[in-house]
């Protein structure tokens, strides 16, 4: 595991930042961390990268206890409110970060060129950061986070300032890192983006994790199927009886909730038995947005 936390808690006076968070992230995994504003996402990330100290609980990053300086050589971090010395050029900033990451002097130039190519900033590398657009500043921030070729990368809202093409490019960078066995911890509000690339997610609300698991498992959820059928002998309610229930729809198109996956072929057989013509029987997949809204709204009176 590259991240392991046990009951990690941060309390500010009477206000809870994070409470008893237990998470595990493995190598080569893209992990999405979601939650509404003020839920404690940034607090959790800041504890892991060493900006704030936990009130209680323990954590290991890359096998080393939290706060281990040497382990940070294998860590990359793009802060949420990224801001850099804007009087430097992009290349100078990366040189500075390369030196801070103890990259050997003779490797710095080639590594800087490599990350500049990755974030597509080679042409603008010698311009001052203050002349960069917000999107370019985000790219140079990502480049600074990648400079040490980290095994674990924390990205806090990495695509918030990027256009759709930029987002696609960042997604490609992230997936290429996973392909190389690197782990990426993503904090983002862009649920559709996370859904495209994450292997696992955790949803945090009020400082506590309320959902956690692989995306595949979490999105499976209830078994809902959309059915389009005509010329049934009897109503759809009757056909579905004992298998589940009709949630919505009328006439030929309905949404049906089944008790389990095995009921899907049984439902198809019943429709045929009832003399119906089956035009469509498709399983409705939950979106991450539905999962997220269900998780953060659940329990609210």
């Amino acid at each position: 595991m590259v991240i392991e936390t046990h009951d990690l808690t941060k309390v500010y006076g009477e206000k809870i930042g994070c409470e008893k968070i237990c998470l595990s992230v493995g190598e080569g995994q893209i992990f999405g961390f979601l939650g509404p504003n003020g839920a404690g996402k940034s607090t959790f990330v800041k504890m892991l990268v060493g900006l704030i100290k936990p009130t209680s609980g323990t954590a290991k990053l890359l096998g080393a206890p939290l706060g281990d300086v040497a382990a940070r050589r294998r860590l990359g971090f793009l802060p949420e409110n990224f801001r850099y010395q804007d009087w430097l050029s992009g290349r100078e900033l990366l040189y500075y970060h390369a030196a801070l990451a103890f990259i050997p002097r003779h490797e710095r130039v080639s590594r800087i060129d490599e990350v500049l190519r990755m974030v597509k900033l080679s042409a603008a590398a010698d311009g001052k950061i203050k002349t960069y657009s917000k999107g370019m500043q985000q790219r140079i921030g990502i480049a600074a986070a990648l400079i040490s070729d980290p095994d674990l990368l924390f990205l806090d809202e990495p695509t918030s300032a990027l256009d759709p093409i930029g987002r696609l490019e960042v997604r490609e960078i992230i997936t290429s890192l996973r392909d190389r066995g690197k782990a990426v911890f993503l904090n983002s509000h862009l649920l559709s983006e996370l859904e495209m690339i994450c292997d696992s997610v955790a949803i945090i609300k009020g400082g506590r994790v309320v959902e956690e698991g692989t995306l595949t498992e979490l999105l499976k959820g209830r078994v809902e199927v959309e059915v389009t059928a005509s010329q049934l002998n009897g109503s759809m309610e009757r056909v579905v009886e004992g298998l589940g229930r009709v949630l919505s729809g009328a006439d030929t198109s309905v949404l049906v909730e089944l008790d389990n996956e095995d009921m899907i072929p049984v439902l198809a057989a019943r429709i045929i038995e009832a003399g119906g013509k089956l035009y469509n029987l498709s399983r409705k997949k939950r979106t991450l947005e539905e999962l997220f809204l269900g998780a953060v709204k659940g329990g609210e009176a």
Partner: peptide, 14 residues
Amino acid sequence: ENGIIHAMMAKPIR
């Protein structure tokens, strides 16, 4: 206050 130090703090420096 302006966040410049955040990225620096995650580097392997005390």
